[in-house]
Each structure stands twice: as structure tokens, then as C-alpha cells.
Nucleic acid binder design. Sequence first.
DNA 1: GGACATTATTGCGCTTTCTGCAATAGATAA
DNA 2: TTATCTATTGCAGAAAGCGCAATAATGTCC
Lengths: 301, 301
Amino acid sequence: MSGQLEQIKVFLAVADAGGFSRAAQTLGLSPSSVTRSVADLESALGVQLFKRTTRKVALTQAGHNYAQRMLPVISEIARIDDGARAFQTDLQGRLRISAPLSFGTHFLAAPIAAFRNSYPGIDLSVNLTDRFVDIMQADYDMALRISGAPSDLSTIWRKIKQVRRSLVASPGYLEDHGTPVDPTHLSTHACLSYTNLAEGEVWELTDPITGATHPIRQTFRFACNNGDLLAQMAAADQGIALLPDFLVADALAAGRLLRVLPEWQTPQIWLTAFYPPYQKLPAAMDRFTACIEAAVTDLRL
Amino acid sequence: MSGQLEQIKVFLAVADAGGFSRAAQTLGLSPSSVTRSVADLESALGVQLFKRTTRKVALTQAGHNYAQRMLPVISEIARIDDGARAFQTDLQGRLRISAPLSFGTHFLAAPIAAFRNSYPGIDLSVNLTDRFVDIMQADYDMALRISGAPSDLSTIWRKIKQVRRSLVASPGYLEDHGTPVDPTHLSTHACLSYTNLAEGEVWELTDPITGATHPIRQTFRFACNNGDLLAQMAAADQGIALLPDFLVADALAAGRLLRVLPEWQTPQIWLTAFYPPYQKLPAAMDRFTACIEAAVTDLRL
DNA sequence: GGACATTATTGCGCTTTCTGCAATAGATAA
DNA sequence: TTATCTATTGCAGAAAGCGCAATAATGTCC
């Protein structure tokens, strides 16, 4: 028993058992170990904790005081240890989530409500933003993002599901400007771009038959960092937009928007969950991810 | 750093320094030791305490909670350790003393008062009794006794001073029964015996010239376990008593008692201090003994 | 009063663990 | 991409842990 805490535990066992041998038996140690532990503790403190002969062992005043004050401390440590263990296994604590704005408003209500019902002990904090945040610095437990291949290597991530996107425009716009039947036509159209501050969007269409990829040079007449507004602009005859299906499903169904070049595949993007660098994900994060995954497979994204 | 307490201290240092290397430098350890300590603690708890890459280190929720709760515990342990150390060096606490009854009433007031003035932080508890108590069982810190060579080996003891004794009788008694001039005469006298319950007293007189020892077979007409009462009985013409000088000094000076066979030496007895089995005596006991010794050398016992 | 039984301590060898150094892998900034 | 800083891991030497056996001390029983 090397550390001080272990020595204290041995000391308390001796005080409780009233003898070194009995304590050794209780602890499953050899009597010599017990002697050494107590002797080392005493010499570290510079105080004798027991008055002892080979026949009687009694606490000194210092020892009595030491035992009385250490006892609650030791059990407090055990309680704190258990509390820490509970973080891994129990569903408790706080979960700070970051998610894309439009995705959040269109999709998150149901799974979050389900999660909260299932695990009322977990406090949820959801931050909707399209900015790519530093998950560590902002102290998120999890960030959902819709993007291509993650470049960030410092965090761990997990693709949840591919998000289908379509080029869409309103019937009115297509009537006025014609419907493109080839990607090259797009350069003459008004394109509506999702743009997150600095980075511009590049549309890249893949021929469904040959598999050839066409990087498109579009002219963006309107750019915005919010998909909902882009969809509304497209519906208002402003041009062609590349938007996730979950944002335009209603408009498509209602005929307010039509798919453009529906055969051509746009670059694949995924709903991806990012986590801080954990060896093993805490249970709460695991469960939340499971909730999202379940909701995603039910509804078609 | 093997023990859990040491691991916790390393963990807190890392949390405080915000990095493993910085913490290692602060603690004077190698970074690898710090890594191992934290890793071992984490695996013992089954919880990750830090979210970490090679560039950033941040507490997990579990770690944050752990640090916050452990911090006061660690400092409490340091405080308790210091408190224990203080027992060895500081003059504080409680001192439970046992002393012979008559010795106590005749002699102890002055040194005790002096001691209390010098060390007001020490609570004194004095138990006057002539019974030989088990110092461990009765939980005394010190027992003063007046006796021959100590037979008890389980305690440590220290002769403080020889206590002179004299055979004394009243002038009236000696007038009636004659003054002994040889120890053999004592067998025809009424002898007053100090007797502590079971054990009878044996008078043994040594010839001051030849050094020959005379075991005396006395007839005890009166026995008592209290020296004061014996002295009063002697003064009341009841016979010859063997009593410590400090008990009969006044009576001798006043002529109420006279020395009998003053040249013959009685068995030597000492004022002796007994202590529980300490390797090193706590400061308070040391000081109290010193007080008694000082008082003893001043006054003639 | 003496032998016995019990208990704490200590010496010793063996095993385990710990430590630091050097090499490696990972992550951020220029 | 390169350079640099940091956490981690492999390894070998060092230190400490452990139990066993022997010793010493002490209380008890006869």
C-alpha cells in the first residue's frame, strides 16, 4: 500500500479492528504490510498514531483526532468516485448540442421531444447555427452538421445519413428562362447559392450514365446562409437553387417548385455528428445520437 | 505516483495548468508520468476526465465535477495532516494525569498551577489515586507513582527523584513504649502500615555502617492505604510508621513526630513517571514532566 | 515465578510497479 | 505541406511493494 490514501485506509482499519493482525486479516493483507503502512504514515506525519506494545494497540490523541477527521473524508472520496462512475453509465447531466439552423427547425423537434421524454434526467441545450464551431472551445458535447467529407481531424465524427439534394426552381422561373437539360446551361441561369460567409459554393454535377463530373461555373445572383430563405427566393421565381430535399419537399409536393436536371447527381453530403475527442462516448451522447438516427431512418431525408 | 490520492493531485494539477506538459513541469515530473497517472485514474473510475487531443486539453463533465468536488477534499486532507503534525510539536490538547493521592494533595498544586500558566492551551485532568492503574486501559497520558523498582515493562518510565522516608512516632508513644535503638526492637512495637489492598508492606532496614540488611517482621496493628491518615495516627500515639518525609515534614518540625532509628536506611523508593508506549514523548508530556522535575528539585522531597 | 501463546516488528528475496528517456503519433499554425 | 509542439507509448533501469520466516516483546495461564 503505497499511496497516502491507502495508508489512511489501513490506519482506519487498524483503529477499527483494534489490532494490526486483525486489520490485516480484514484487509486481506499480511501483518507486515499493515505495520509498514502505519509506520510509513506515522513517519510521514511525524506523529505516532498508535500507542502500541505487542499486546495492546490504542490510538494516541493525534491518532484519535486523525481517525475522526479522516473518516468522513474517506467516505466522501468514495462518494465522489461513485459520482464520477455514474457519468459514464447513468443517463444524467447536461448535453450541449449544436445543429444546423434549418435542419433544426425542420427536423429536430420530434426526436428531441422523444429524447426528453425518455431521459428526463438529462438537461438539453440546443444551439442552432450554421457556423462551423470549434466543438472543444465552444464546449459542445455534440455537433450535428450537414457537409461533405469532414476535414476536421481533431474531433471524432460519425456519418448518420446521406442528405439528398435537388436543384429546384419555380415553374414561373423556368417558363421565363427555359428549363436546363444539360449542366452547361446553368451558366446562363440565375443561381441561388447557399454560402456560409467566406466559402463560396461550387456545384459539381455527375452524369448519371457516363459518371463524368462537370464542375459548373455558375453565376450567383443571390447568396444566403439560410436554406429556408433560398427556398422562398426560388419559389419567388428568382432562380435555381441547390437545396436539401427536406427543405423543399413541401414546395415540390405543392408544385411551387420543380426539380431541375433531376437525373444529374449533386455532390454527396451527409448529416454528420461530431464529438469531442472521447475514447468512449458517454452514454447520454450515445443515446441522443441513437434518437437522431432513429428519427432519420423513419422520415426520409 | 501510485496511490489514488497522488493521482488525484496530478489530475487537479493538469486541470489547473490546462495541459499535461505544463502540469508535469509544475509538479516536477516527466510528462509520461502525468499521462500515466491520469490514465490510471480514469481507468480506475471508468470515466474519461479530460477530452484531449495532443493540442488541447479540456475537462469532461465528469472531470469538471470530479475536480470541483475533490478540491476541497484534498485541502481538507492537508489540513488534517497539519493538525496531526501539530500534536507532536505544539503544546495543545488534553493531558490526563494520574498521581498518588497524598503526593497530589501535598505537592502537586504548585507545579500544576505553574504548568497551566505556562501552557494554557493544554487541558489538564488529574486523577489522584494510589491504585496502580493500567495506564493504557485507563487512557492516561502519564502516571506519577511512588514505588520501588518498576516491574511493569509494557510502559516506559522515568525515575524523577528518590523519595526519602523515615520511621516516625509521636513523643507520647515513644515515652510509653520506649524508643527502639535497633531494628529488632520493632517486632515488639505497634507498627502502622501503608497497605494498598492486597499487598502487605515489608520493612527492610539497612545498617548504615555494615550495609547489612535486616528484613523486619513487624506486627501491624493498623493498616491504611492513605499516608495522611497514617501520619495522623502516628501523631495520635498509635505507633511507628514509615512515611515519606514530605508527608511528615511539618509534624517533625513542630515536634509532633520524632524520627525513629534515623540512621538506618529504609528501602529506597522513587517518584517515577510512567508513560504509555511512545517512541517519542509528545511535547505536552515532556513539558509536564519537566515541570514536576523542576518543582521536585526546588522543594526537598 | 516460569513456560507458553500471541502479536508487532524486521530482514530478506522476489515480484511488481514506477520512473524517465527516447521514439511515435497526432494536431495546429505558418 | 512543413514545422513544431504535445500527448502517448515502448523500453530498460530503479525503486518500492509484497509475503514469508525469524525475532522480539508482552501478557497469561499454570
